[in-house]
Simulated assay, not measured.
Amino acid sequence: MTRGNPAAQTAFGPMVLAAIEQNEPPQRRLVDDDLAAQFLPARMRALVATTRVAPVRRTVMAAVQRSGPGLWSSIACRKRLIDERLSDPLNETDAVVVLGAGLDTRGCRIARHSDMPVFEVDQAVNIERKAAVLQRVLGGTPPSVHLVSADLERDDLMAALQAAGYDASRRTFFIVEGVTQYLSPDAVRTTLAALGTAGKGSRLVFSYIRQDFVDGTNLYGAPSLHRRFRGRHPMWHTGLVPEQLGEWLSDLGWQLVEQAGPSYYRDLYIRPTGRRLAASPIEWTAVAQR
């Protein structure tokens, strides 16, 4: 179903990583997600199961690190940062919207203790797959979770959300994780500007790839990663510049609150685990507010 749609296939990788992290002792994990493995297809669940053995787990992590130095840590840490910002007791939120939701488990984890509406947006192929996964794992989609099919390159995002019951005047926590690089620059601007019309007090967390890596002027020691995503059939189309992000977001209706890069992840998340890992300078995560 996804063979002709490479971007849709990227839903699996981050969730496999999150699932493998659960096989680390609790004090050594970079992220907690007890549903991650259950949401994966059988063959990937089998792979994750093999990593309960520490040497196998280290081998798998090392293979990922060779293809993209530091990306394992960056992906795990961005997930943790988003979870922490979402669960911040000072963060008053009426709804959550997850763009490019893929196999993301947050909606179901929220549904365990809250009836706050969560809208998960993705391409039709991923929404169909997610519905099947929820049926298999939970017996159906939780009442507070709304699956919304939309193509961010072509469809009217806010119209699709509103058709699913979303109220754009509410304070919303928007999550755009691992998405912006797969969109065209125009689609990124259009999408974030549309989200910028949400109610006052809304927040936005999104990850992005540095522009200098996308255009190839700085490969940050990851030439194979650049070839994979920017080679003959490029999947990454958009990059952003950390130093220019505040002004760029302001034009789209958002105020930049913070950015997290490799040093942030190293000091706050990696060092306390005692693991000798580095985070990638290629990907950053930003938090903004309305």
Rank of each mutant, 00 (worst) to 15 (best):
163 A>N: 02
171 R>V: 01
178 G>N: 04
217 T>Q: 13
153 E>Y: 02
188 V>Q: 08
187 A>P: 04
190 T>N: 13
200 K>R: 13
177 E>G: 08
210 R>H: 10
219 L>H: 06
166 Y>K: 01
181 Q>D: 10
187 A>Y: 02
166 Y>R: 00
191 T>A: 04
171 R>F: 07
152 L>G: 06
188 V>Y: 03
166 Y>G: 00
153 E>F: 03
209 I>W: 05
202 S>G: 11
209 I>R: 11
202 S>T: 08
159 A>K: 00
190 T>L: 09
157 L>H: 12
165 G>W: 02
169 S>M: 06
215 D>P: 06
170 R>I: 02
170 R>C: 03
168 A>F: 04
171 R>H: 03
197 T>W: 04
208 Y>C: 07
192 L>D: 08
219 L>G: 10
195 L>V: 12
182 Y>R: 05
204 L>G: 15
218 N>M: 08
190 T>D: 13
210 R>T: 14
215 D>N: 15
154 R>M: 02
172 T>L: 01
176 V>F: 11
150 A>S: 07
186 D>W: 05
212 D>T: 14
187 A>G: 03
169 S>T: 15
160 A>G: 00
202 S>L: 08
158 M>N: 06
169 S>R: 12
165 G>F: 05
151 D>P: 03
172 T>S: 09
167 D>A: 12
183 L>K: 03
214 V>F: 11
193 A>I: 02
214 V>W: 09
186 D>N: 08
178 G>S: 10
215 D>L: 09
209 I>V: 15
210 R>W: 05
195 L>M: 15
167 D>S: 05
175 I>H: 09
162 Q>A: 04
209 I>L: 13
205 V>T: 15
158 M>I: 10
186 D>Q: 14
155 D>Y: 02
166 Y>I: 01
152 L>V: 05
190 T>H: 14
207 S>E: 12
159 A>P: 00
217 T>D: 02
200 K>G: 06
198 A>Q: 07
152 L>I: 09
193 A>P: 02
169 S>Q: 12
163 A>I: 01
215 D>Q: 14
172 T>F: 02
164 A>P: 01
157 L>G: 03
195 L>T: 12
162 Q>G: 04
152 L>C: 10
207 S>D: 15
218 N>L: 10
180 T>L: 14
165 G>R: 00
150 A>D: 01
159 A>W: 00
170 R>G: 00
183 L>Q: 11
157 L>I: 13
156 D>K: 00
161 L>P: 04
201 G>P: 03
189 R>Y: 08
162 Q>N: 04
216 G>P: 10
216 G>H: 09
218 N>F: 02
163 A>D: 05
171 R>G: 05
159 A>E: 01
170 R>Q: 12
198 A>V: 07
182 Y>S: 09
170 R>S: 10
210 R>N: 12
179 V>S: 07
181 Q>I: 12
205 V>D: 14
177 E>Q: 12
182 Y>W: 06
211 Q>H: 15
175 I>K: 06
170 R>F: 03
181 Q>R: 08
190 T>G: 08
198 A>E: 09
196 G>I: 08
194 A>L: 10
172 T>Y: 01
